[in-house]
């Protein structure tokens, strides 16, 4: 696939203070407990009260992040809206399941059902911005955001002028408990800033809503260029080992050209071995900032774009950083979701 893809605007609602002001100057938010929740902004600056009253949390997060992203990019009506979400609106799904039981299938409010559909956020964005163009939602765990990104890159390649691409996921206490039953989270309770001091089975959970405005042309405003994307589904160790050098080679790069790898390393000893392919690369883990969830790749991309734009790694977020790299041209992101969906994303400074 030819054609270029630049990040013209972006916005992120995450467990860190990423939404307002200069996010790179914010101190790290430290949470004691294995479930990180978003630092939520005041939604009323973005959504009319009459629309806000029915919306549940992840709808507000998704819609607000998308609107802020469009503001940031200066694009009012994007040529397409493409998103990824692993779980959609959990709150609405949980509520509707409970109402079916509690009211014995009688006299049910339709709102949680409507809002539980995975494309609800997309519909709201389209509605609010009057965007009647292409609209798609991917719902495939650790590939949800990445396929939204691939779809967006295809659209730009096919001639769409700009695309709003994003991802959103939330965690609820009930779902945190449920996923804990199949070993997703650590048994011991920790603080996120101490995540990597606790190698053990499981990790910490998180959530976030992150959006990007993408265009095929570079401007002075561009944050970064998205140079490459690859997804590997349940790769064998041999396949994974050769995949990384091959991916770099496809983009005309060698290991030495990578100035930084943002890794999905999450202190989960069940799946830590995959990250050994990064031995020898300069690397920083990021999940102490976000927790782990299906679409955390969008947060990693936001982080990489910030770092490339500012040509600096925010040291208060990365206390493990020994020294700033000599140059910051190429950032690689390698992440996987509980060992199943593996992704490489390559970003270049502009």
């Amino acid at each position: 696939m030819k054609g270029k893809c630049y990040i013209q605007g972006m916005a992120a609602i995450t467990p860190q203070h990423t939404f307002e002001g200069d996010p790179m100057a914010q101190p790290m938010v430290v949470t004691h407990g294995n479930m990180l929740s978003c630092a939520e902004p005041d939604y009323r600056s973005f959504i009319a009260p009459n629309s806000l009253r029915r919306m549940t949390r992840v709808l507000k997060m998704g819609l607000t992040a998308s609107l802020k992203c469009l503001q940031d990019s200066g694009i009012a009506v994007p040529g397409a809206i493409v998103t990824g979400t692993g779980k959609g609106s959990l709150q609405d799904t949980e509520r509707f399941i409970k109402e079916i039981r509690d009211y014995q299938e009688k006299a049910l409010n339709p709102t949680p059902f409507i809002q539980s559909t995975y494309n609800a956020v997309n519909g709201l964005i389209a509605l609010q911005q009057k965007c009647t163009q292409y609209n798609n939602t991917f719902v495939h765990r650790g590939f949800s955001f990445e396929h939204a990104l691939l779809d967006s890159m295809l659209l730009l390649h096919e001639g769409t002028a700009d695309v709003l691409a994003g991802a959103f996921d939330e965690i609820t206490t009930e779902h945190f408990f449920i996923k804990g039953r199949i070993g997703h989270w650590k048994k011991e309770t920790i603080s996120n800033d101490k995540l990597y001091d606790h190698p053990s089975p499981g990790t910490i959970s998180g959530e976030g809503a992150v959006f990007f405005a993408l265009t095929p042309v570079v401007t002075t405003q561009s944050y970064a260029q998205i140079g490459g994307l690859q997804m590997l589904y349940k790769p064998s160790p041999e396949k994974l080992n050769i995949a990384l050098p091959k991916f770099l080679q496809q983009h005309g790069l060698q290991a030495a050209d990578i100035d930084l790898v943002l890794t999905g390393e999450n202190a989960d000893t069940n799946h830590a071995h995959y990250y050994e392919i990064l031995n020898g690369y300069p690397q920083l883990p990021f999940k102490h900032l976000s927790g782990d969830y299906e679409t955390v790749g969008a947060f990693a991309m936001w982080l990489a774009a910030q770092i490339l734009k500012h040509q600096q790694i925010p040291s208060q977020w990365f206390p493990m950083l020994q020294q700033q790299p000599a140059k910051l041209r190429n950032i690689l992101i390698y992440n996987h979701f509980f060992g199943e969906q593996h992704t490489f994303m390559l970003l270049h400074a502009v």
Partner: peptide, 9 residues
């Protein structure tokens, strides 16, 4: 119209 359904509920 969604409110109208909620009012019927």
């Amino acid at each position: 119209s969604i409110d109208s359904l909620e009012l019927m509920v």
